[in-house]
Nucleic acid binder design. Structure first.
Lengths: 227, 227
DNA sequence: CGCGAAGATGACGAAGTCATGACAGACGTC
DNA sequence: GACGTCTGTCATGACTTCGTCATCTTCGCG
């Protein structure tokens, strides 16, 4: 399987070098020249790994990293010219997974990306299973939910919402968490949108949508899915 | 929570330096001087992270790493003097999660350990986050309190209050402590609000709310939760 | 016993929180 | 381009929860 990287660096020359080297290794590359574009690209098309330069024209790489972390678990590797140990610590504390310094060897960077993906992948692979909650079978890859042998036809949003809740195994997820997971963290609309889709979901999966037994409201907190 | 590290290096002096530095950071340290001992220690008492030197008296660090990987998913950080990029790649390909070179800065190593644990931990933490006090089961993530198989429906504030008291294991918590933990530091209202919520909580969790047996008043001090 | 201080209790209004149905625009399909 | 579906927004109303207050009870102590 081919992985996608998001390359964040303001130097077109560096981007080109890295792009060529990493494409050679079989990665798909997206680029961003500043922090703002990076966040936009991240929302539009979440990559498997982010390579983040520390010095960006519009803002600090640390703060970009923290902003990424606030909404997402995507692996981040800091790629920078600053070799100072304090910067390494600051970068890792900001939520980065690794910190490598330029000038860098493409093979090494690639090996570090692989090591990181090896560690992260299993967590994502868990999502490719079939989740079972109560009498619902949720086939994440097949985008299909069945009860007994009737197939429930959910829309894309409803399905993602259900899958996220099912993946959390009874944990309460806040509207904000659901927004960022289902809608992407670039979404700035009303968080009440979650309520509406919860309702639509209830109409399809609850026996009595008026008094839900599976898709339960945690007042003041969010929602959770229980058996 | 405190984490345990396994330090594998043949140089007693280096082990001592690392041990001191890492104990300072709050880690529990076990040591091994060669590959054989390392595997034995690993089986006997699996650590949270392995720090592995490349040059060991009995065998190559790469092969030790591969053997570790065959048996376990424990995070491995290669700590070595060999800075050559080929070694880095070889180390990571052998299954290591990170590769740092001596001489190293303790703070940086510690930050890398933390970054790695941050990535690995969630998978292990999937297990229960459940407090038990007497006959009450408090599911912290699910925001649910059960007695036997009846679910007690607590409000958000009641739940937080109960969770704080339960987390303190029978210790008395003052109104001020509870205010800051449950209501947040920004709250400047009357501390009597605690009384009121304690009462509401008692109505829900005590068998006889008029003479509480679990949620006990410590007159002049605060409240505590006992089994 | 009698006192004062601390806590318990019940009531209330205000604010917060959700469920629900309707609607219009976006989107995709044919 | 017409149709139906999906999506996000909104207004409404019911219901919860919260913080405050006034009053009553209990406790500890002289």
């Amino acid at each position: 399987m081919t992985h996608s990287l998001l390359l964040v660096d303001d130097e077109p020359r560096i981007r080109r070098v890295l792009r060529l080297a990493l494409e050679d290794e079989g990665y798909q590359i997206a680029e961003a020249a500043n922090g703002y574009d990076a966040m936009a690209a991240l929302r539009r098309e979440p990559p498997d790994v982010v390579l983040l330069d520390l010095m960006l024209p519009d803002r600090d790489g640390f703060s970009v990293c923290r902003e990424i972390r606030r909404a997402s678990d995507v692996p981040v590797i800091m790629v920078t010219a600053r070799t100072d140990s304090h910067d390494v610590v600051a970068g890792l504390e900001a939520g980065a997974d690794d910190y490598v310094t330029k000038p860098l060897v493409a093979k090494e960077l690639s090996a570090r990306i692989r090591a990181l993906l090896r560690r992260v992948e299993p967590a994502n692979a868990r999502q490719s299973e079939v989740l079972v909650v109560g009498d619902l079978r949720i086939d994440v890859l097949g985008y299909e939910v069945t009860r007994g042998d009737t197939v429930l036809s959910l829309t894309r949003t409803e399905f993602k919402l259900l899958a996220e809740l099912a993946g959390a195994e009874g944990k309460v997820l806040s509207r904000e968490q659901l927004l960022s997971k289902v809608w992407g963290y670039g979404y700035f609309g009303d968080s009440r949108i979650v309520d509406v889709h919860i309702r639509r979901l209830r109409l399809k999966i609850e026996h009595d949508p008026a008094s839900p037994t599976h898709l339960v409201t945690a007042r003041g907190l969010g929602y959770r899915l229980v058996s």
